[in-house]
Simulated assay, not measured.
Amino acid sequence: MPTCSASLPSLVKLMLDATDVRDGQRVLEIGTGTGVTAALLRDRVGVNGRVVTVEVDPGLSASAQARLEAAGIDATVVCGDGLVGWGTDAPYDRIHVTCGIRRIPPPWLRQCPDGIIMLPWGTALSGERDRVVALRVRDGVGVGRFGAEVSFMKARSQRLGSWGDWPDNGDTVEADLPVRWDEIESPLEPFGGFAMGLLLPGLTYRLSGGGAEERVLWLKREGAHASIGFGDGHKTTVEGDTRLSRDYAQAARWWHDRGRPHPERFGLTVGENEQRAWFDHPDGESWAL
């Protein structure tokens, strides 16, 4: 399984611009990789700034440090778990993250209590599609709206596990759900999958069937399993955890009723003991993650 790649230069620039790094600032990078972004960050902060970059993989960390030293670039390379940050040189003005994140680690907020944390955020339903979000942190609380679509390898400890064996969920019964059969699958398109993942944190799915055959949507969340059978000319049925299937159907109804909103209408508010997604405005509709 790939664990590191050099990103497209235009994408690197987009994310550096979102981080809004300025002369003289102290910057923590999460995910050193090849070391090229650390070099660019070092150039942006100037002679009075400082860059610390953390890489979990010992081999990548060593090779990046060798490249930076050979190029005469003064950046501190740390081999460790970036999800705990690097408190030794805190506080930082900026945290620049180059791996996909599904939950913000509280140490980042403590180490950048008044600044910007830029990261690629994804949900369990958005697959490899992430969204750039620049959290503007004030007094340890970060707020930001989702922006451009990107695709990053997820932080190793936040990757989704395998499904394993599917349990026997008992009888399949006809269901009266708040969605038509043709509205069940459509929220899983690229835009919808991101939004549905915010509404239903931790949910993963599989689809089977197609054409004239009955489609089956398989759902799993925190040990609960359910399936929804649907299709043109087929009765809608459910099996397994009825709360899970209804939660999915209600979230799909919400998404359709609001005109299938684009991911950029959503954002995050993150604090030491709180992480929530919001719709249209930080003070609008929101959901705990």
Rank of each mutant, 00 (worst) to 15 (best):
A64G: 03
D283A: 12
T172D: 14
E189Q: 08
T98M: 07
G140I: 01
T32F: 11
Q275S: 01
Q250N: 13
R159W: 03
V216E: 09
L109C: 14
C4V: 10
G229P: 06
G164D: 01
P187A: 05
R22N: 07
D130H: 15
I117N: 06
V78A: 05
P105C: 09
L200S: 02
A75K: 13
L188W: 15
R258W: 09
S7R: 15
E149F: 13
S61P: 08
R129D: 06
V12P: 14
V179T: 02
S126K: 01
G164C: 05
R180D: 11
V132L: 11
R206G: 15
L28N: 00
D20Q: 10
R258F: 06
L135W: 14
G164W: 09
E214V: 03
W166D: 00
K220A: 04
F152P: 07
A251C: 05
P120D: 02
T236H: 05
A6M: 08
R103S: 02
A288C: 13
G127I: 05
R138H: 14
G209N: 03
Q111M: 06
G46T: 13
M196W: 04
L268N: 07
A251E: 02
V84A: 03
L200Q: 02
R138L: 14
E55S: 00
E274F: 13
I101G: 01
G267R: 13
V84N: 01
A148Q: 09
L125Y: 07
R276Y: 10
T53N: 01
A226P: 02
K235F: 13
L135C: 10
A75G: 13
G33R: 14
F191K: 08
V78G: 05
G231E: 03
V173Q: 10
D176M: 07
L268P: 13
A71G: 04
R215T: 05
G209T: 00
C79W: 02
V173P: 09
E285R: 09
D247F: 09
W254Q: 05
G115F: 11
C79A: 15
G140M: 07
V132P: 07
V97Q: 11
G115I: 08
A252R: 06
A75I: 10
A175D: 01
P261G: 04
L83H: 00
G87I: 06
L83P: 00
S245C: 12
D247Q: 09
